[in-house]
Simulated assay, not measured.
Amino acid sequence: MMERCAIVTGAARGIGLATAKQFLGMGWQVALVDRDREELDRAMAPLGDRAKALPYDISDPDQVAQIIADTLDAFGRIDALVNNAGVAEFGPIEDCDFAMWRRVMATNLDGTFLCSQAATPALRQTKGAIVNIGSISGLRASTLRVAYGTSKAAVIQLTKQQAAELGEYGIRANCVCPGPVRTKLAMAVHSQEIIDAYHDAIPLNRYGSEEEIANVIVFLCSDKASYVTGQVIAADGGFDSTGVGLPALRV
């Protein structure tokens, strides 16, 4: 029997790279997709011959077709697609011009749609899984995130559409919505004041790690989640459960 194969987009760093490493540790083959060729090359160095770098842009339909073709050429099958690639541009709602809106949508929503559509024939063959990466910002509104939050809310609905329509082929589709995660990027842009505020608002009183999010993603792609589809799982330390969550009302 051929080894299973996963495609992970946005895999050069952060949650995507952590997810790819977990798949490799389980004996899977992994196609790591990222448009940042230099960062992808650095990430690939220690990963071995069961990993393949695909330096493509998921917002381009032609490049998405090449992702699928190259993966099948290298590994012969696709058992899981993790739509992790995303961009975040934050700012006041009145400053979000159409160009910014389209930049965010092109990757976060269009890219997720394109990759899923292109991978579906191969996933039908394996009765595989799609895991889309949403965000806590797609579940609860927040300031400065009109394009980002809306794109992630759309990804959540796209996931439900996929589950409803692809289930008859044995394809499962689920969405993971990370809360604040201790990535290098987040730590570079979050002030101590922001960090303290998140800690106050999150019941577990801390950021998540990249590995903790990857744990949920890999589980949803595994046989252990064989009867789980159409679900939206907030891996967020309880942040979504708190509602207003005023720190002053905490005991």
Rank of each mutant, 00 (worst) to 15 (best):
R4Q: 14
I7D: 03
A12E: 06
L17C: 05
A18D: 06
K21C: 11
G25N: 10
Q29P: 04
L32N: 03
V33G: 08
L47P: 09
I58F: 06
D62E: 15
Q63S: 07
V64S: 11
A69M: 09
A69Y: 01
F75W: 13
G76Q: 03
G76H: 03
I78Q: 05
A80Q: 04
N84K: 09
N84R: 10
A99E: 15
M100N: 07
V104G: 01
M105H: 05
D110E: 14
D110M: 06
G111L: 10
Q117S: 05
T120H: 08
P121V: 04
Q125H: 13
G128Q: 05
G128N: 06
A129I: 07
V131Y: 02
I136A: 09
S142I: 07
Y148L: 03
A153M: 10
T159G: 10
I171F: 09
A173C: 12
N174G: 03
K184E: 15
L185N: 09
S191P: 10
A197R: 14
A201R: 15
P203G: 01
L204V: 12
L204G: 07
Y207S: 09
E210W: 09
E211K: 08
N215A: 11
S222I: 06
V228D: 01
T229H: 07
Q231D: 09
I233R: 01
G237H: 05
F239R: 10
D240F: 13
S241H: 11
V244R: 13
L246P: 05
